[in-house]
């Protein structure tokens, strides 16, 4: 028998502090939304290279989630494989490693990403360097014979004078999955930035600074964009919440500084490695950027 409106008045309520309501937006929801932003790229990857994409996806995701579970289990910590952060890190990891990486190297790399890159620092939000990039550098250092040649050999369109238009949509011979379609990444990233799931300041300043600097130095912009997964780094890896600055001015500076470092490293490091090292340096500089970019009222 439900209570009448006037009987309900006699109840008591728990005492709480303000604010009494919440936006109901949770961090795991966020991580899954960013993963969804990568969906156009993954779909295109599956269409272009079904075999390699599926092999990398299955090995990376399964071993990554297993590693996360085991780490939490043996440390008697709360198991957080469903919050989406490990899944996102594994996904980003397979997008930056060469697609011909053997399965044992993928599993070893993912182990490094989750255990050393994420869990050892204390989990999501605590790590200093982006775990996926740390895993990439780990692989490139340990298996220089198997991994590094693929990363360094690729320069799109060195033979052709005119780059075909379809190259922006798909590149069949790209060495990494993240490099296969700049447009697909851009679509996912723009949608996320429009809905403020990614702070648009970092990608905007990074891309703008890169364009201006490339024009000044005299690098061909289309070749630069097609040879490197710049869109992936601008929208998904550089603005990663845990490793990028938290203040709005710090985010703008991080974008500009990353573009500078990238063009600096590019003079002797080719391919994805230049991007990875520049982002890792920005990650290390994050506390400094945050401290000096904060708004101070006199």
């Amino acid at each position: 028998m439900p209570l009448s409106p006037k009987e309900r008045l006699k109840k008591t309520f728990p005492k709480t502090t303000s604010p009494h309501w919440h936006s109901r937006f949770s961090s795991s929801y966020w991580a899954w939304q960013i993963t969804l932003g990568l969906l156009p790229l993954i779909l295109l990857n599956v269409i272009i290279d079904f075999q390699d994409t599926l092999r990398l996806l299955i090995f990376a995701v399964l071993s990554g989630l297993m590693c996360d579970y085991l780490f939490a289990f043996f440390h008697r910590e709360e198991i957080t494989i469903d919050d989406g952060s490990s899944f996102l890190l594994c996904l980003l990891f397979i997008l930056v490693i060469p697609r011909y990486t053997p399965w044992w190297a993928v599993m070893l790399g993912v182990f490094f990403v989750i255990a050393a890159g994420k869990a050892c620092f204390g989990g999501w939000g605590q790590y200093i360097f982006h775990p996926s990039l740390a895993g990439l550098i780990f692989l490139a250092t340990c298996f220089a014979g198997e991994i590094t040649p693929y990363l360094r050999a690729y320069e799109y369109g060195t033979q052709q004078a005119v780059i075909p238009f379809y190259a922006w949509f798909f590149q069949v011979d790209a060495p990494t999955l993240g490099n296969m379609s700049p447009i697909a990444v851009l679509i996912g990233g723009m949608v996320l930035a429009w809905h403020r799931r990614i702070d648009p300041r970092t990608p905007a300043t990074f891309l703008a600074a890169l364009l201006i600097l490339a024009l000044l130095i005299g690098i061909r912009i289309d070749r630069l964009f097609l040879s490197h997964p710049i869109a992936l780094f601008a929208f998904f890896i550089l603005p990663d919440s845990s490793t990028s600055p938290i203040t709005s001015r710090g985010r703008i500076w991080a974008g500009i500084a990353c573009a500078l470092f990238f063009l600096f490293f590019k003079s002797w490091l080719t391919g994805i490695e230049a991007l990875a090292y520049s982002v890792l340096i920005i990650n290390g500089l994050t506390p400094l950027l945050d401290r000096y970019a904060r708004f101070v009222r006199s």
Binding site: R24, S27, G122, G123, G125
Partner: peptide
């Protein structure tokens, strides 16, 4: 009302 318990900060900004 969101009665979820406190999780670690992810520095989302």
């Amino acid at each position: 009302i969101d009665e979820g318990k406190e999780k670690p900060c992810i520095r989302c900004g």
